[in-house]
Amino acid sequence: MQLAAYKKLFTPPPANWKTLTGSPTVINQLWPYLGVWRQKVPGGAGAAPKNWRTGQPLTYDISHSDEVFFIDAHSHERFLLEGPPAAPKGSIPATIYRFMSDTGHKNATSPPTTAWTEAQAKRVLRSLVG
């Protein structure tokens, strides 16, 4: 439900954009397999973070590394782009931008040198499909 709502924020979402999820057990097995770092973060003092979709207070959040995995039809990882994306101005839906941390806002307005671009992702795809 959360991923489907997230995908709908992008107008129009890419036609071939797959959003996958599973039970906490499956996700907790998949992320380490792929090498994704993540950490449960308590709500902390002050204003509790809110769910971007429902506006309800969260009791925790999940901090995680940023990667884009290119996986072939045989479920083999073929390439990895690591780091945050260099998002063109205005490409982040306002609902998500309001939810982002100060670091996320900084990365969106002034991407780090490690940020990958859409053009880089397209080059990877072209090289993988010939």
Rank of each mutant, 00 (worst) to 15 (best):
N28S: 13
P57Q: 05
D61P: 00
T54N: 02
E118L: 11
R78A: 11
A94N: 06
Y97P: 00
D72K: 04
S110C: 10
G83Y: 01
Q29F: 03
A15E: 15
V124H: 02
T113N: 07
G43H: 09
P49K: 04
E82W: 06
E67N: 07
G35K: 00
E77N: 10
A15V: 14
P32R: 00
R123L: 11
P88K: 01
R53C: 12
V41G: 00
K50R: 11
P84T: 15
R126A: 15
T59E: 15
Y97I: 12
A121P: 02
A5Q: 12
P111V: 03
G90E: 10
S75K: 08
V68H: 02
W37H: 12
P13V: 14
T113H: 05
W52S: 05
K50M: 07
Y60H: 13
S63Q: 13
Q120W: 04
P112Y: 07
A94C: 04
D72E: 05
Y33I: 14
L80T: 15
P12C: 11
L125R: 09
R98C: 06
I92A: 11
K18N: 09
Q39H: 06
Q56M: 10
S110E: 15
G22A: 12
T117V: 08
A115F: 03
A115Y: 03
I96N: 02
E77Y: 04
T59D: 15
F70V: 14
D102C: 05
Q29D: 13
T11S: 10
K106D: 13
W31I: 01
Q29K: 10
G35R: 00
V26S: 09
Q39L: 08
A47C: 05
Y33A: 15
H74Q: 14
F79S: 13
V124R: 02
T54F: 03
L81M: 07
R78Y: 05
I62Q: 01
G90L: 04
E118N: 08
L34C: 03
V124C: 05
N28P: 00
A119Q: 13
A121Q: 05
P32D: 10
V124M: 04
S110H: 12
T25Q: 12
G22K: 00
Q39S: 06
A5S: 11
P88N: 04
S23E: 09
L20A: 12
R98M: 10
R98I: 08
P85S: 11
V36D: 01
D61Q: 13
R78W: 04
S75Q: 12
T117D: 04
Q39N: 08
V41S: 01
A119R: 08
A94M: 07
Y60P: 01
Y97N: 07
K7S: 13
T103E: 13
T54C: 01
G43E: 07
D102E: 14
P42L: 06
T59K: 10
S91G: 03
I27R: 01
E67F: 06
A94P: 05
T54Y: 00
V68W: 04
T25F: 07
Q39E: 14
H74R: 11
L34T: 05
Y33R: 13
